[in-house]
Write a protein that binds this DNA or RNA. Structure first.
Length: 430
RNA sequence: GUGGAUGUAGUUCAAUGGUAGAGCACCAGAUUGUGGUUCUGGUUGUUGCGGGUUCGAGCCCCGUCAUCCACCCCA
């Protein structure tokens, strides 16, 4: 006998979870396509050299890679961004720019698993490439906001900062050489606290003064307006103008859209990844801050520089779907309760009526009602339990050609109804 | 990858190195107007897996697998 085990960090998905996941994805796709975004897909396996690019130290260790039967060095994608860059470089001539795509699929990382962190997980990416403008930045932000609202999560805050401005500031105080390390440390502020960040900064740059200046830059000031903050940061960066202007434009657009209250300028947001050059953002749920960012991203100068000479600026964002799903569950969001397998269960009571059961089921299905037929004449109790286990709201007694009783399984109440009324009833309460 | 904690019935939890238990859930039957009550009976099990110590291991030791936590990194 072989043990039915699954690998560390991998898991099965039961119908109750899978139905919710599919619905969340459907909701997201609806929002994305309403903005004119189109779906793409890329292979799960790529040449290792394509995925590793210049060879990032940490990703090397985390990537699943092996030699295939043809002797090729291949690897499983560990995110959707790198394959997207390769995809853009290879299909540039087929795609009109600016190009807006979304991509929702599994990725793999050989990392040590923890709660909400697995070796196989879903990512949901959406990007606009081929344009560098405040409108594109804002559209991504707006779409994030719409997506969360569509999922029934209206209590969220998107924290915004500007990587370019921060880099200008670091150069201004002569810390540009350590930019990558500094970003990584600052990114941990929320987690390890101010003092720990300061200590680590001093260790890296060897200057108390510079460390203090960096902390000052990233610490939000009480009672300051967004405009004031932008001016202050600009000043700290040596009266930087270009990035400052972009930030102002974005906030002006968010204001005109009337959604500025969901956004906050937060200079402590840096994102650890070093390819960001413009605006960066992270999304936090008001009622579940401990879960961390559920959607983050930013603007990058050049997506596909590894694969093509063509310059491709872009802005994009990524939703951690697994993290989001556990958030929906914890917050008891209505989307998390939509796990019913069908709308109505036809009860099996009398074998001689079977043709009528099947015919009724077909009629209901044609009217757009999801209809499940119990498959044997077990005790009624068992049939009710089946319905409940599948979260089916209604059971139907088919007693004759035009003789129906619709039972609300939760309320345990019966109603004699015509087939037409049954359809209306079932659809009306969905 | 490094360090730590944990692993007992479907589930929540017990059991001093001395015969593996309870509630809930589940199944069968009786009662109940086509479910909720009540009663009777039943399975709750390779104590994650494999070794070792011991007369004897759920308990102690080693290994292994998995989960959780921290680091690292990130979603």
């Amino acid at each position: 006998m072989i043990q039915p085990r699954v690998l560390k960090g991998f898991r099965d998905s039961l119908p109750s979870q899978e139905i919710v996941k599919k619905q969340v994805i459907a909701t997201l796709e609806e929002v994305f396509s309403s903005f004119g975004f189109v779906p793409i897909d890329t292979p799960v396996l790529e040449y290792t050299e394509v995925l590793l690019g210049k060879g990032g130290g940490e990703t090397d260790k985390q990537i699943f890679h092996f030699v295939d039967n043809g002797g090729r060095d291949v690897a499983m994608r560990f995110d959707l961004t790198v394959p997207f860059a390769r995809f853009m470089a290879g299909n540039l001539h087929k795609l009109p720019l600016p190009f807006k795509r979304y991509h929702i699929d599994k990725v793999w990382r050989g990392e040590n698993p923890q709660k909400g962190r697995y070796r196989e997980f879903y990512q949901c990416d959406f990007d606009i490439v081929g344009i560098d403008s405040a409108v594109a930045d804002t559209e991504i932000l707006l779409m994030m906001s719409d997506a969360f609202k569509a999922m029934g999560l209206s209590r969220f805050t998107i924290h915004l900062a500007h990587r370019g401005l921060l880099n200008a500031f670091l150069n201004h105080i002569d810390c540009g050489d350590h930019a990558v390390e500094i970003l990584r440390i600052v990114d941990k502020l929320r987690k390890i606290g101010e003092q720990a960040v300061k200590n680590q900064l001093i260790e890296i740059i060897g200057s108390d003064e510079a460390a203090a200046a960096i902390l000052n830059y990233i610490t939000p000031k009480e009672g300051e307006s967004t405009t004031q903050t932008i001016e202050r940061l600009s000043e700290l960066a040596g009266n930087e103008e270009e990035h400052t202007k972009r930030l102002k434009e974005i906030f002006a657009l968010l204001n005109s859209l009337g959604i500025a209250s969901n956004f906050i300028l937060d200079p402590s947001i840096t994102r650890g990844l070093d390819y960001y050059t413009g605006v960066v953002f992270e999304t936090f749920l008001t009622d579940l801050p401990s879960i961390g960012s559920v959607c983050s991203g930013g603007r990058y100068n050049d997506l596909a520089s590894l694969y093509t000479k063509e310059e491709l600026p872009g802005v994009g964002s990524s939703i951690g779907l697994d993290r989001l799903l556990s958030a929906l569950e914890e917050l008891d969001a209505s989307l998390a309760h939509s796990a019913s397998s069908s709308d109505i269960l036809i009860l099996f009571l009398d074998e001689t009526l079977l043709p009528l059961y099947l015919k009724t089921a077909q009629t209901l299905r044609e009217s757009g009602v999801r209809c499940d037929l119990f498959l044997s004449d077990k005790k009624l109790m068992a049939q009710y339990k089946y319905g409940e286990a599948h979260e089916i709201p209604y059971a139907l007694f088919v007693k004759g050609e035009d003789d129906f009783t619709l039972r609300n399984l939760e309320q345990r109440s019966d109603h004699e109804l015509s087939l037409k009324e049954i359809v209306a009833q079932v659809k009306g309460t969905l």
